[in-house]
Every structure is written in structure tokens, then in C-alpha cells.
Amino acid sequence: MLALDTQKEIAQLLSRYPIKRNALLPILHVVQKGNEGYLTPELLEEVAGICEVSQTHVEGVISFYTMYKLEKPGKFHLQVCTCVPCCLVGGEELLEHVEQQLDTHAGHTADDGVFSVEEVECLGACSYAPAVIINEDYHEQMNPEKLDRLMDELRTQGQAHA
């Protein structure tokens, strides 16, 4: 069962579209957010029911877009951009640095479950490259030192909450 808050948000979303299927993408975002950042087969089934589409349709949609996750991400999910402008000013080196620091590879969650890392295409922040998104926030003109400091802070936060 979806949490009451999530249900309310979904009802709100549905009211903004002519047909229920139109609200599929925003609904998936809301449901994913309400479930620690990932979707499960049960949730997909529920969303399919709400949007009046087949579960196969929902699965097809999930696999097309990069932002829907079927595995639980870290408490802090890092998207490191290595697209053209970021690459020109150190995006790849930044990704390598993060992978080393966390002893993991892009596409994985580090052992402690605090961080997960993903290599992504352009984030639309190219004039402020290299760019990294952590959960929903942009961090720009990054370099290894700045990112280390930020991650230290987050790690402390993450452990305090755990």
C-alpha cells in the first residue's frame, strides 16, 4: 500500500491531465521517492493500476528512462557528469577520484550503503562544469578536494541518521 501522503500527491497529479496514463512519469517519480529511491515489482503493479495501463507498459517505460531505479541506491546518490563540456574540464578525473575514494564503480552502491555513484550524460550545467548531482541538488565547478569535503559532511550526516 502506498503511504497516505503519496496517495494524495498522486490524486493531485491525476487531476492535472486529460487521461490517467499521461501522469505516469510524475507518478513514478513520487512513488520512487516515497520508497527510498527505487521501485519494486509490487509498486509497478500498483502504478499500472492507477494509470490504467499494463504492467508491461510500465516496465517498458522504466527501462527507457535513466532516472528510475530498480535497486536501492545509497542514501546519497551521486550523478557525475562526464559529457563533453564536463570532460573538457576534468569530469572524468572527478569520476575516477570518487570511484577510488569509495572503492566502487559507477553503477554501484558502496558497501556502507551511504553512497552510490552513477556516470551520467550532460546534466545541463555545462557552463558550471564539472557538475555533480547529489540526490536532488546540483554541485558545480567541482574538483576532487571540494567533493571530498562535501562527501565527508554527508557521510557524517548519513551515519548520524542511520
Binding site: N22, L25, L28, T66, M67
Partner: peptide
């Protein structure tokens, strides 16, 4: 939800249709 091609206007329309 993360797909460059959805910037192309007809792909965008499919996307917003769900």
C-alpha cells in the same frame, strides 16, 4: 526522467503522454 531524445518535440509528446 532522463532521456536526451525527449528533447525532440515528438518524442517529448510521447513522453508526456506516459
Amino acid at each position: 526522467a532522463g532521456a536526451y531524445i525527449c528533447g525532440e518535440e515528438t518524442a517529448l509528446l510521447d513522453s508526456i503522454e506516459g
